[in-house]
Write a protein that binds this DNA or RNA. Structure first.
Lengths: 143, 143
DNA sequence: ATACCTGCAAAGTCTTTGCCTTAGG
DNA sequence: CCTAAGGCAAAGACTTTGCAGGTAT
């Protein structure tokens, strides 16, 4: 996990100004254990009194465009989620379709070699992929 | 690709009534080469004069709940797409991020064995997964 | 006849923009 | 000072629901 100072430094290098809102958003993002939605951040008390929804939205835009965040969308969730773009490689997630809990998987991505093949066959460039697993977690199976 | 009669028969077996709207939606869905959105179907002239958006929406709901359609969501597209749920296994897609063209991939899914491992490790049941590839297609690379 | 289906209108959710004000460098 | 950033209000896109009237079985 990156440090607050590290994140702020990266923002500064990309020309972002150091504002109350940016500081608050960075701090609260760091507390999140899972990919977070705009509304989730907005509900945090620190954010609540520091900035409004539009500001968070635009900070997400900026952080995504400078490569600090990655935008994610999961099946059957309307709202987008964001997560830190720690290394350039993508992440896999495992989601419970009953309680909506999300965990990041720590598997070496098994799809990279297939991706290379598809790129060659199709002529596509700048390939990337999303791989997400869904199921019912242990807790929810008991109900 | 299923036949119109076959689809209609499946609907009847599940208790759906044979209505003008259902017939039109089935026919127009069969013409689609890619996963389709509600708005795409709505724009088809046959649909346009037969039923309105709400009706299409509810037919999609019914067809999805009886397992005839599958709901898909792709990163950076707001609207959901649907495709025929031909066999029970999922499909992989390759999407151009420039022109938004979608093609279905005909690869044996490479993730099934990993899925089994994840199920065992996590205790998750009813596992499934989505795998989608993104890139820039040949045509769009020339621009 | 009765349950299902349709159409219209309207509300809900999430996202995005315009515009004026504020404040960072 | 100059320009990026913030706040508020409102619009946009997509989805979803309520209800009254129509239709398949």
């Amino acid at each position: 996990m990156p440090s607050y100072e590290n994140l702020l430094e990266k923002c500064r290098l990309k020309g972002l100004r150091k504002t109350k809102a940016l500081e608050a958003v960075l701090k609260v993002m760091l507390k999140q254990e899972k990919p977070f939605s705009l509304v989730e951040l907005e509900q945090d008390p620190v954010i609540k009194k520091t900035c409004d929804r539009t500001t968070i939205f635009r900070i997400f835009q900026r952080l995504t465009s400078i490569g600090l965040l990655r935008k994610l969308s999961f099946s059957d969730e309307k709202a987008s989620r964001f997560s830190f773009n720690k290394d350039e490689s993508h992440k896999e997630y495992l989601i419970c379709q009953s309680c909506s809990d999300i965990q990041e998987l720590d598997i070496g991505c098994p799809v990279n070699s297939i991706e290379k093949e598809i790129a060659e066959t199709s002529g596509f460039a700048k390939m990337r992929h999303d791989l997400t697993f869904y199921g019912i977690c242990k807790n929810c199976q008991e109900d």
